[in-house]
Design a protein around this nucleic acid. Structure first.
Lengths: 198, 198
DNA sequence: AGTAAAACTTGACACAGTGTCAATTGACTC
DNA sequence: GAGTCAATTGACACTGTGTCAAGTTTTACT
């Protein structure tokens, strides 16, 4: 049924992601998106009730495309806790640039829009579960630093790997992406494992 | 001359800070500030050209009140590099909650307002100088980690101590302030000094 | 006390961006 | 040919910032 509608919906989501990626998310208005798709602004509301809902749908669409699951496979298959930590950090650190445009738009909306805040918060909570799993693996190996509980270690790791930190380091500080990744892997080890285990 | 004007200006700044502190910076409108002072919204523009300028002035006013300089004295007087690092981290970490309301408002404006972005950026740059000085002291003692250059270490420390990280850890993760401080001191040591020097 | 400047008020308006609504057009289907 | 769905057009409400002109109150000076 209504394949025309489905089709337009996809075009909208795609255009949204494109604009967000190139324009760095700052000021992507409903008008811009409609223009990119080739429909009127009002027509957008036939597909998505609000801007927040559109961004939300774009987030899910992005996941489909980028295939988050398969990126995390190496981490899940790691044998030691430290290997798991390294793999997770690297996977996430390399994923950030791909979602950055969208993340920034959602992050900016958080202050004003409760729905957007909830959506983003939920997604970050999912990512936190990955952190928790890595920390758990460390604890199982007894390689987790004694100065932190598992929850605290998870919190710290989560904060370290936040999109905002990525933004600060790669944008403001001009760290190349590869350097950022390498560094974060080392930092997480230093902070979370027993005395900088190699 | 015109002491009335000066007086009102101060009342405006004070009201702004009060609202920002209690209301957590989310939606403090010009109307709210005017209402708190007891004047009309339009009258605010007789004192400050734009909202950004008002926020900017409030920032400087806050510094006067909180006396940033004296807070940093212990850090400057530290003898070893590590003592200096610890003192600076603790001083800054304890300063964040006091400026948080204002910081949040300025941070939120960054996306849309270039002036606000510039103001906040400048202030963060000042704070970065403090990081750089601490790193330099470590380097002088040869206690700086060999895996980072001085600039990289400064960047990392700066990112770690960002207001947004404080927000994540104390708000989202519910870390008590004291725990946050203690932890950040330890983390900075772990990341920046030679193999976790005690 | 008288006056001029400065501080503030009132009320109106422009602008951007989101969201809403009603009436209409074009196309595709049964 | 009637019905339905996607989209269009044009208008409007709402919020918050910033601007403007005209009028009133306060303050300061002599």
């Amino acid at each position: 049924m209504s394949s025309k509608s489905e089709q337009t919906r996809k075009r909208i989501l795609q255009a949204t992601l494109d604009l967000l990626e190139t324009g760095a998310g700052n000021g992507v208005r409903m008008t811009d998106i409609a223009g990119a798709v080739g429909i009127t602004r009002q027509a957008l509301y036939l597909h998505f009730a609000t801007r927040a809902e559109l961004l939300m749908a774009a987030t899910q669409y992005l996941d489909e495309i980028k295939d988050v699951e398969s990126r995390l496979a190496p981490s899940r298959e790691a044998t030691s806790g430290i290997a798991r930590l390294d793999a997770f950090v690297a996977a996430w650190a390399n994923y950030i640039p791909e979602i950055y445009g969208l993340a920034k738009a959602l992050l900016a909306m958080q202050e004003t829009d409760d729905v957007a805040a909830a959506v983003w918060c939920q997604r970050m909570q999912d990512m936190k579960e990955g952190c928790a799993a890595a920390v758990k693996a460390l604890a199982a190996d007894a390689t987790l630093t004694p100065s932190l509980t598992a929850d605290e270690a998870t919190d710290l790791m989560w904060a370290m790997l936040s999109v905002r930190n990525w933004e600060v380091l790669t944008r403001d500080c001009q760290w190349p992406q590869a350097f950022y990744v390498e560094n974060m892997v080392r930092n997480c080890r230093a902070l979370l494992t027993q005395s900088g285990t190699r």
